[in-house]
Design a protein around this nucleic acid. Structure first.
Length: 607
RNA sequence: GCCGACUUAGCUUAGCUGGUAGAGCAUCUGUCUUGUAAACAGAAGGUCGGAGGUUCGACUCCUCUAGUCGGCACCA
């Protein structure tokens, strides 16, 4: 039995005060302590393999662990990972963590050529002392529990190197980050590797290519996606759905120009606070400056302002599938997830202050209903607040922010929903509730959002006539339900792994005549009947073997494949094969029509 | 934007230390006329991301540039 394990089920773990306790190996804490030790062993290995290397943070998190480092001559390269991994595993066998309570001056003297370690030590020091874990030749600030013995580290893999800013600030130098993962058992490691592989198979960029949904061609512009017919069909289906939903919910859908006089964006505050993300204005040569819009709010404000509004008009809900352009940094672009041209399922509700809570709840209800229709279940609520240390990034005064943030929290508490707060994530004009989802590769992204805005109504001088006959200022609630069409389709592609539910599938039915000559007419008549019922159907009458066509229907993830031959023609029937199933089911045409129409009508719901 | 890796036919890709490119799928043309995951044969398709440079000679080495990917930063 390895000495690191008290018994098979427990490990010794040291805490930041140097005390040692036994905890369950198969607990979250156990895994965390394992990763923490792995990160320090990696530090020690880097220190050994690369003379004069400076060491940044070593972090254990839910994905594994990573260590930042910096070296003058050459960077740690991906080719060196396996050597580094061997060194680490060799060290692990006899590794034992020692607790050191060092004098600050002594600790600093030891790392005098390493500004990163020095800074970490200084930050952690208390009363001239600093608590550290020593692993091999490396001492690191004690932060979090750590497994004491290294002999349990056998199933470890260094995964990749990447750049990362020191302290996460882009104004700081960039260090090299080595990522790794480690588990107590080979099975767990294998499973983790499989999960990472599986995640890549869900990637919308891979599937988008396989299913011919969209493309981005650098020759015609990075971040400017082209929607192929199949992708366009998915998008159009969602657009029709969401417009109908919103109209039913009291929204008035509009169309507004993608170009607008730059002055409007000066008034809105975008020019001041959002310019870096905007395309440069077009100088028309006669004094007019046009801007391609990065957001739709100023456009909808024009709709509001076009008439005198009364309290009777409120809440006034303006919505649009608004195309916008943002100059995203080249390194941020990614398939349909981050693009430079996007169409937002945008909406702006103009309300009186006392209507905020009800409207907020109404919007959130709409979002939750829509999520059910799309079977979106994995999300979290993020209350995005102003960064109190960085107020110049935002428009407005403390009072407005305090009030709107308080209102938003109260609205969330009313609804009794779990949420977490994130400072610095607010829009420049106000706080927001973001609904966060994860991409296939595990990156966090905002899907839906509800934002409070006291600023733009003020800056644009919006008003309505109250019961008292006097002018009042409305509040704007910005909201996106399915977010941008680009990101939403990317997300759905990933969660469905390209196997779109029937209502969204670009091709819902493939009809395969056994012999085109003998059964082609029957197939085409059947297809016409389905088309008349708005079903998206393709008769595969190419000169190919049946098996070939079946295979293609499966690889293209078509929900229903119908084979029609002598038997079917005789009985006015179809042989039905569903995507992902091998079983075939023979039924009458009418029975099939009923089945597929019911399927389509149920959206993606799993009832 | 930053760090690193990568970029060969529509797609997926082979091409060791320099001697001007091969394959599978898709496409087209024939033959075959098909009962639940790939019929057979032939043809066509590449200025090896772009621009410079080194060299007798560059897909291969160097520089610059664009894009993609993994991260970071930023964000719907």
């Amino acid at each position: 039995m390895p000495k690191g394990e008290i018994n098979m089920a427990q490990i010794a773990v040291m805490s930041v005060d140097g005390s040692v306790k036994k905890i369950d190996r198969d607990s979250e804490e156990g895994l965390q302590a394992l990763r923490k030790l792995a990160s320090l062993l990696l530090k020690d290995s880097l220190h050994q393999e690369f003379k004069g290397i400076r060491l940044g943070e070593s972090v254990a998190d839910e994905d594994g662990f990573h260590v930042d480092s910096d070296k003058d001559d050459q960077q740690v390269s991906a080719d060196e990972l396996s050597a580094l991994q061997d060194a680490l595993l060799a060290k692990a066998k006899d590794a034992k963590v020692e607790f050191v309570e060092a004098d600050l001056d002594d600790a600093l003297a030891e790392v005098k050529d390493d500004p990163y370690s020095s800074e970490l030590i200084k930050e952690a020091a208390k009363d001239g002392k600093v608590a550290m874990y020593q692993v091999g030749d490396v001492k690191a600030v004690a932060d979090g529990d750590i497994m004491v013995y290294g002999d349990a580290i056998k199933h470890l893999k260094l995964l990749s190197v990447a750049g990362a800013y020191w302290k996460g600030m882009s104004s700081n130098p960039m260090l090299q980050r080595v990522y790794g993962t480690v588990f107590f058992s080979k099975d767990a490691l294998d499973e983790d590797m499989k999960k990472r592989q599986e995640a890549r198979e869900h990637d919308h960029r891979v599937i988008g290519n396989q299913l011919d949904l969209f493309f981005v061609d650098p020759k015609v512009g990075a971040g400017l996606p082209y929607w192929m017919p199949k992708g366009a069909t998915i998008r159009r289906t969602i657009e029709r759905y969401i417009i109908d939903r919103e109209v039913a919910d009291g929204y008035e859908h509009v169309y507004t120009p993608v170009l607008m006089n730059l002055d409007a964006y000066k008034t809105s505050g975008h020019w001041e606070h959002y310019r870096d993300d905007m395309f440069p204005p077009m100088d028309m040569g006669d004094g007019e400056m046009l801007e391609i819009r990065p957001m739709n709010c100023p456009s909808h404000i024009q709709i509001y302002k076009h008439h005198i509004r009364s309290y009777r008009d409120l809440p006034m809900r303006i919505a649009e599938l608004g195309m916008m352009h943002r100059y995203e940094k080249s390194g941020a672009l990614s398939g349909l997830q981050r693009v430079r041209e996007m169409t937002l399922n945008d909406g702006h509700t103009f309300v009186a202050v006392d209507q905020i809570r009800d409207e907020f709840a109404k919007i959130l209800n709409l979002i939750m209903d829509v999520y059910k229709d799309f079977d979106i279940t994995d999300y979290s609520f993020r209350l995005s607040l102003r960064d109190p240390k960085n107020k110049e990034k935002y428009y407005g005064n403390d009072e407005m922010w305090d009030e709107s943030q308080k209102l938003l929290k109260a609205a969330m508490d009313d609804l009794n929903l779990d949420y977490y707060e994130a400072e610095g994530e607010a829009a420049f004009y106000g706080p927001k509730l973001d609904i966060q989802t994860k991409t296939a590769l595990g990156n966090d992204e905002t899907m839906s959002t509800i934002q409070l805005d006291f600023m733009q109504p003020d800056r644009f001088g919006l008003s309505y006539v109250g019961k008292d006959g006097k002018e009042h200022m409305p509040v704007m609630i910005h909201r996106g339900i399915v977010g941008t069409m680009e990101r939403f389709v990317a997300y759905l592609t990933e969660i469905y792994k390209g196997a779109f539910p029937t209502w969204l599938a670009p091709e819902q039915v493939h009809i395969i005549p056994v012999s085109d000559e003998k059964h082609g007419d029957y197939a085409k008549q059947l297809a016409d009947k389905m088309k008349a019922a708005q079903i998206r159907v393709v008769v595969d009458d190419r000169n190919e073997k049946m098996g070939y066509k079946i295979r293609e229907a499966q690889t293209q993830k078509v929900p229903y494949t119908l084979v029609v031959g002598d038997d079917e023609v005789k009985d006015n029937a179809v042989s039905v094969r569903k995507y992902g199933e091998e079983a075939q089911n023979s039924m009458s045409q009418d029975a099939f029509m009923n089945e597929i129409l019911a399927d389509i009508a149920s959206y993606s719901r799993k009832n």
